[in-house]
């Protein structure tokens, strides 16, 4: 990965063809994402409805400071982020590593099983998670029968446990998804590297941290950024599992923004302002991530 050498051997013509390669995607993103983003930012400086929008400067941003529910939703979302993302990604790398073993049988079957959750329709997944954690659900009856709980607990009806159920659901749903990237990334590591490590007497744990993790670094950075982005924009679980309840204890930022647009009396100016706060948070975290993780430059 000596990039300096590569940079020096590139002639001008190749640089130009490089731009040609980027052009279609970049133009599309500019038109389909950046232009609407600029429009949304302008909208965030306005209040009113429909055609009757008026410029009111940063009043929507000031409003955020006084919005208890949105501030609570920021707290909830970061709670999910901090706990769920590390657990999920470590689990995903671990599974990818196990499933990459040459000697393992039924690999295709195991892989498909682990991937299944994210392909399972949201509707059935929400129904089943709610019923699993209901007061007369499977989880309660197991815990009560094992005498871990004295009596059935209303998991979705209490603040902390409702958040934990969301985290469990997220880990369940997205671990296999992230595993896909690691499995694909692992193909770039020659198996002989592992054989060599084994000869050197490195155990599984050592090869995992010493070989797998460093060589997967680009993929790990990517999944980290994706997970940060996905969690800070988390919507499905909050809406479908807990409805943001009890008493807004599990509502996420995106859920609240959606409500502001489509459930409550529509207020797109304010929703856009909140969206830009989310945008700034994701951007900051993603770039810290890139700077810390990317050692190439």
């Amino acid at each position: 990965m000596n990039t300096k050498k590569k940079g020096m051997t590139l002639i001008e013509k190749q640089r130009m063809s490089g731009w040609f390669f980027l052009a279609p995607a970049s133009i599309m993103i500019a038109v389909m994402s950046f232009y609407p983003m600029i429009r949304a930012f302008i909208l965030s400086l306005q209040t009113g409805t429909g055609a009757n929008m008026k410029f009111t400067g940063f009043s929507n941003y000031q409003r955020i400071l006084a919005d208890k529910v949105f501030i609570q939703s920021i707290g909830n979302t970061f709670f999910y982020l901090i706990i769920q993302v590390p657990i999920m990604l470590v689990l995903a790398i671990l599974l990818a590593q196990l499933l990459n073993n040459q000697h393992l049988r039924f690999k295709g079957l195991f892989r498909t099983c682990v991937f299944l959750p994210c392909a399972t329709s949201l509707v059935s997944y929400a129904i089943i998670f709610r019923s699993l954690f209901a007061q007369d659900g499977l989880v309660n009856s197991i815990l009560v029968n094992l005498h871990i709980l004295p009596q059935a607990y209303n998991f979705l009806g209490n603040a902390l446990s409702a958040r934990i159920v969301i985290i469990i659901a997220l880990i369940w749903r997205w671990t296999g998804y992230n595993m896909v990237f690691y499995l694909s990334g692992l193909q770039n590591i020659e198996y002989s590297v592992y054989e060599a490590a084994k000869i050197d007497g490195a155990n599984g744990w050592k090869t995992f941290w010493g070989i797998t993790v460093p060589l997967l670094r680009p993929t790990i950075i990517m999944t980290f950024i994706m997970s940060i982005n996905g969690t800070l924009q988390l919507f499905d679980e909050s809406v479908n599992l807990t409805k943001g309840g009890p008493a807004n204890a599990s509502i996420t930022m995106s859920h609240y923004i959606y409500n502001t647009c489509f459930v409550n009396v529509p207020n797109f100016g304010y929703a856009s302002a909140m969206s830009f706060i989310v945008f700034i948070m994701v951007a900051i975290l993603a770039f810290i991530n890139l700077k810390v993780g990317d050692t190439r430059d």
Binding site: R130, S131, A134, D136, L156, G157, K243, G245
Partner: peptide, 17 residues
């Protein structure tokens, strides 16, 4: 009985809870 979702509500009725 406070339930957490519409499905639970229907369930509480159909199961005779």
């Amino acid at each position: 009985l406070l339930v957490n979702s519409w499905d639970d509500y229907i369930k509480s009725i159909t199961t005779g809870q």
